[in-house]
Amino acid sequence: MIRFDHVTKVYDAPDKPALNDVDLEVDRGDFAFLVGASGSGKSTFIRLVLREERATRGAVHVAGTNVDALASWKVPRLRRNIGVVFQDFRLLPQKTVFANVAFAMQVIGKSRAMIRETVPQVLATVGLDGKANRLPHELSGGEQQRVAIARAVVNRPAILLADEPTGNLDPETSRGIMEILETINQNGTTVVMATHDDEIVNRMRKRVIELDHGRVIRDERGGEYHAVGDRLVLPSAGQAIAPFDSEEDEL
């Protein structure tokens, strides 16, 4: 589903590539954790899949397409097949839960009837029945993240990318989120989740890909991960994959 073919990504410093000769494949229906300290290249990995960036060397294939060679007008079509969830939720504050999820369908031209049918279903899947008319600020962090997940999967993408989805949540709430991600994965969606949270990784017993300074140092199924005491220097919200910054944007 996602194949990295000896991918190297260099931003500014040629001697410090963000990803260094990464060669791996995530199969259809896989659930993979992407672990590693901040700066290890997890976000770059996700940005390359989304074609926010292009590989400096090597090729990134998503669902059989070489995304580096994709014409820019075809990129939206690629992204419709990928759902993304972030640490900072990125909901639209003036829109209700329903409208936030519906937004993802509206902007790709889905009919009103289809939106009315699909959105409540998806909200039920993430456990938000009855909260469709709430505004994001009326919800807890865990609930906001559920809205974000609903938005990411409402168009039934083949791939779900999650960048530190539990980074702002307490362990109890995080477990709830992980259950949802697992359900989504069981329904056939390939899930790639970047995280620091060793507790989650160790409990789930899924594939673990560990990055260190842009290199894959470990890739094992049912693996474990022990973060090396860097939890205090976690990247702040929005540092990861940021097509826009996450501060309040009212002028």
Binding site: L50, P76, R90
Partner: peptide
Amino acid sequence: FTRRRETGIMRLVGASK
């Protein structure tokens, strides 16, 4: 600028240019 949140989400869910 004021709508960069919306446009950012639009890009991510694959809205066309």
